[in-house]
């Protein structure tokens, strides 16, 4: 049996939906969602803990998925899945990589 995300229907931890479908405004949002879902499913993150983090962070963000990302960063670090220093380093590397796509 795998763990699934019992997404709330209402309240601060409930994701934005239209006609029951999850709404993502940008690809990174669905990616951040999928990463958390995968970690929860494999038991590497605890969904109640993630939901508690959402309830805490959502009121401080304009966008629901910004709060989701903050919670994801926070919990992958506190659960020792990602070292804070390596996240900063990798983000910098990705930022500084050659653009590549516009040299034509």
């Amino acid at each position: 049996m795998t763990n699934s995300l019992e997404l709330a229907n209402d309240g601060p931890s409930a994701p934005p939906r239209a006609n029951g479908e999850l709404i993502f405004d940008a690809p990174w949002q669905s990616r951040a969602f999928g990463i958390a879902a995968a970690l929860v499913e494999d038991g590497r993150l605890d969904w109640p803990q993630f939901q508690a983090a959402l309830i805490e962070t959502v009121p401080h963000h304009e966008n629901y998925w910004d709060a989701w990302l903050v919670s994801l960063v926070d919990l992958t670090e506190t659960n020792d899945l990602i070292a804070p220093s390596s996240l900063v380093l990798r983000t910098t590397e990705l930022f500084e990589r050659p653009a590549g796509h516009d040299h034509g």
Binding site: W28, D66, L69, L72, V73, I82, L87, T91, L94
Partner: peptide
Amino acid sequence: DPSLRVEAIESLL
């Protein structure tokens, strides 16, 4: 940019 951070998280994981 959040897309960078998400990409970084995914690649590390």
